[in-house]
Simulated scan of single mutants.
Amino acid sequence: MRFHPLRVRAVEPVAEDAVAVTFEVPPGLYEVFRHTPGQHVTLRRTADGAGGTGGAEVRRTYSVCAPAVPPPAAPVLRIGVRLVAGGAFSAYAVKELAAGDTVEVSPPTGRFTLRPRPGRFAAVTGGSGITPVLSMAATLLAERPDARFHLVRCDRTAASAMFLDEAAELKDRHPDRFQLVHLLSREERRTGPPAGRPDAGRLAALLPALLPVADVSGWFLCGPLGLVRAAERALAALGVPATAVHQEIFHVDEPTDGTDARQAAPAHDAPGGTELTAVLGGRRGSWTAGAGETLLETVLRHRPDAPYACRGGVCGTCRARLVSGEVRMDRHFALEPEEVSAGYVLACQSHPVTGAVEVDFDS
């Protein structure tokens, strides 16, 4: 996984606990950092250790919130960062990062995307889940006059809502083609929907009142696990086919059990000594997996360039195709059901079950 040192152009507050960070992209990297709306980048830094000693490497993924622009225009690389309690990177970005600083950034990646095309599209977002969807909506409406976008965004309070001004400007720019509904769970307002948690029942009643559900070509759900699952259940109850629903989990905000659609069936791990073969960057290697190790941990001991970021089964950066053998995934929120059926796994969550396993990171 390759990183490029990019200079920070600006750090701007976009909520009471969040900032937008804009990077300068040099002309030689224009094509490297062009993004498809919805993609994310991985940021890397080495946290300070105790007593001034070198610390551990920290990686985090953040979605690009800026609209995509075609060549030859310079790509706009802007991300949203929300402060997370105990977050090693978010605390640094929100409290310390400043214009002129340099951060290591990977090229955009990710499959939670919307390429501009005709039609009607809709999204349900929660908290910082607005970030990739803002890029989707802005790009779609700018490039396709024959497209519409409906956004239901959910936040705790108005002060905690990221990119309020940007969403309002988008509504002003495209009043007939962009619908914006804002739900607050912990704050009552004089106008708009009443406060309350946007559970499946509430969403199933609200969505048909806002838009023609059957006419929507694609649904994009982004935010905490609880909200995304609630929106999935609501859409299923409304008859929306699963193939029209795309989701990206930003964090897991509640316990999960074996009935979760993204949770793998339990299995017994293989004892230590499994032979793991991996194809990465066109190179093939085989190593012995240690007892209890994930596939990613084994590969990283020999290939530090292996792709990863969150290590929590959320970002999908370590996605690989299982060529042979069997693995157990603790969780796989970042994979669509069809990807799991096609044999893709998340290396950070996969433990070998058989004595030999082969994966391909290049597939």
Rank of each mutant, 00 (worst) to 15 (best):
R2C: 13
P5S: 15
P5M: 08
L6P: 00
P13V: 14
E16R: 14
T22A: 07
T22M: 10
V25G: 06
G28F: 03
Y30L: 05
E31C: 15
V32S: 10
V32Y: 08
F33W: 09
H35C: 01
T36I: 14
Q39S: 07
H40I: 15
A50D: 14
R59Q: 05
A68V: 02
P70H: 06
P70W: 04
P71S: 12
P72S: 09
P72C: 07
A73S: 14
V76T: 13
V84G: 05
G87F: 06
A91F: 06
K95S: 10
G100L: 06
T102V: 15
V105F: 00
V105R: 00
S106W: 01
P108R: 04
P108D: 09
T109F: 14
G110F: 00
R111M: 02
F112S: 03
T113F: 00
A122F: 10
S128E: 10
A138W: 07
A138P: 11
L141Y: 03
F149E: 00
R156T: 10
A158D: 10
F163I: 08
F163S: 02
F163N: 00
D165E: 12
E166G: 11
R173D: 08
R173W: 13
Q179K: 02
V181L: 06
V181N: 03
H182I: 12
E187R: 05
E187M: 09
E188R: 07
E188V: 15
G196V: 08
R197M: 04
D199Q: 04
G201D: 09
R202E: 09
L203D: 03
L210V: 12
L210Q: 12
V216Y: 00
V216C: 02
V216A: 12
V216M: 06
L221S: 01
C222L: 02
R233K: 13
R233V: 13
A237Q: 09
G239R: 04
V240T: 01
T243D: 05
Q247A: 15
T256P: 03
Q263K: 15
A267T: 15
D269H: 07
D269T: 04
E275P: 14
R284P: 06
T288Q: 01
A289G: 07
A291I: 02
A291Y: 04
L296Y: 03
E297M: 00
V299I: 09
V299E: 00
L300E: 06
P304H: 01
A309M: 05
C310W: 05
G312L: 15
G313N: 07
V323C: 08
V323H: 12
E326W: 09
R331W: 04
E339G: 12
S341H: 15
Y344E: 04
Y344R: 03
L346G: 13
H351W: 06
P352M: 06
T354L: 06
E358P: 11
V359H: 06
